[in-house]
């Protein structure tokens, strides 16, 4: 086969990637700095300025980061021991429990959040158990919703990296006199860092960007995801795209890419990062 026909065969793929992955991302930037008005297209930095100066927006950004941070920490505190305990069980128990852990992940996100909502709203069982104290509408509801939705996404990569650890390494550490704590600190923990990093990414990014969880569980809390959703859908005018929405999405995109590159820096060793297993 000649070089040219070989390259020709690759072109549709490149066109596909450019057209449906790169161009749409560029569009976010375009809509952040251009206004499409009936009298023409205007360049403006007004909307980017709005994102950085408007008090409500800044608060929403901080709030989103805050919820995401707290939820990720809780997921880590709950999830790391869970992954560790799971990995220490017998083979049969392990495969059964990891399927059990996977199952909710494959349930529709909206249905899962609705299921959580129906526990903590006016008629919810939890509300009745708490004697009428309704969690819906509180910050705690958002955190609970996030931990509930994303915990399995954190546990699985960590669990996978734990099951990959060579048993001989652990035994060698024990033979050399290490107690459980030493073995954990010297062998198990360092080898699971890539799993931890990919687990954190999988929780933190969706937590920062979600608009469903605050919308359903505490509609008073404005997060950046909810602001964007409002600008584009629920609060959208008939005149077309709200450029403020474009600017907000652009900032969110930058935020997501920053998060991912930070995690990438920590986790250089892409291949060994324990991923999800289906």
């Amino acid at each position: 086969m000649t070089r040219i026909t070989k390259t020709l065969k690759n072109i549709p793929l490149y066109v596909w990637i450019i057209l449906f992955t790169i161009v749409p991302l560029v569009m976010i930037f375009v809509y952040a700095v251009f206004e499409f008005r009936p009298d023409g297209v205007h360049f403006t930095l007004e909307h980017l300025k709005y994102v950085f100066t408007d008090k409500q927006v800044l608060q929403a950004e901080l709030r989103s980061l805050n919820y995401a941070f707290i939820s990720t920490v809780i997921c880590l505190l709950l999830g790391y021991p869970l992954a560790y305990f799971l990995s220490r069980l017998s083979e049969r128990m392990r495969s059964f429990l990891s399927i059990l852990l996977l199952l909710p992940m494959w349930m529709n996100f909206i249905i899962r959040t609705y299921a959580m909502l129906s526990l903590i709203d006016e008629e919810g069982i939890v509300t009745r158990i708490l004697g009428g104290t309704m969690l819906k509408g509180t910050d705690a509801a958002i955190i609970i919703g996030m931990v509930y939705n994303f915990l399995p996404f954190l546990v699985l990569p960590i669990y996978t990296s734990m099951t990959k650890i060579d048993k001989n390494l652990i035994e060698a550490a024990q033979d050399l006199g290490g107690n459980t704590f030493h073995v954990f600190k010297g062998v198990i923990f360092p080898l699971t860092v890539p799993g931890v990093v990919s687990g954190i990414t999988m929780v933190f990014v969706p937590c920062v960007t979600t608009f469903v969880i605050p919308q359903l569980l505490n509609n008073n809390a404005w997060t950046i995801g909810k602001l964007i959703e409002f600008k584009f859908i629920s609060g959208a005018s008939a005149e077309g795209v709200d450029p403020d929405g474009g600017a907000l999405s652009f900032i969110l995109m930058v935020l997501v890419f920053i998060c991912m590159s930070i995690f990438n820096l920590i986790d250089k060793d892409d291949e060994s990062a324990g991923g999800m297993t289906l």
């Binding site: 449906f20 161009v23 749409p24 991302l25 569009m27 976010i28 375009v30 809509y31 990014v205 969706p206 920062v208 960007t209 979600t210 608009f211 995801g225 964007i228 959703e229 584009f232 795209v241 929405g245 474009g246 999405s249 969110l252 995109m253 997501v256």
Partner: peptide
Amino acid sequence: ADIVTGISLMLF
């Protein structure tokens, strides 16, 4: 993030 993918396609 899904929201970024969704909005990028919508704007496109």
